[in-house]
Amino acid sequence: MDLLLPGIGLLAWTLLAFLIVFFILKKFAWGIIISSLTEREKGINDALASAQQVKAEMAQLKNENESLMAQAREERAQMLKEAKETKDKLISEAKDQAKAEAAKIIADAQAAIQTQKMAALTDVKNQIGSMVIEVAEKVIRKQLDNKAEQEKYIQQMAGELNQFGN
């Protein structure tokens, strides 16, 4: 039965010891330990979160880079295409222009030929006219002498003219 009877000495000492230990540990141990653990846990959580964030940012950056590269590639292709187009256009334009120029030169030449032809014809006509007048003058002069001679001469002249005309 002694086992179940608390000794007053041990009661008092335990109470005293517990209170002292409690206050010492509360003041010098638990507060520091708990706040340190919380701080460390928070630090680890923060570090993990920021690592995750950095990872996400890196992925985003990579994506952005890739899209930039794709864009650049596309732009380059576009530029090449445009350059090619410009070149083709330039060439065709030059060709067209050359053609037009040539046509114009030909047209001019033809016009000049035409003009000169016309001038020549006119000249011929004029010469024929004056020859006709000259023949007529000679005929008129010969008529006065001999009628037969006159006719003969006209025919001779006409034959000359035909020769000339041919």
């Binding site: 230990v21 010492i24 540990l25 010098f28 141990a29 638990w30 520091i32 330990i33 340190s36 653990l37 701080e39 460390r40 630090g43």
Partner: peptide
């Protein structure tokens, strides 16, 4: 008490934090 206070002091110095 000695154990706990010494541990707490280590935490205070940054070890474990």
């Amino acid at each position: 008490v000695v154990l706990m206070v010494s541990i707490a002091n280590k935490y205070k110095k940054g070890q474990g934090v």
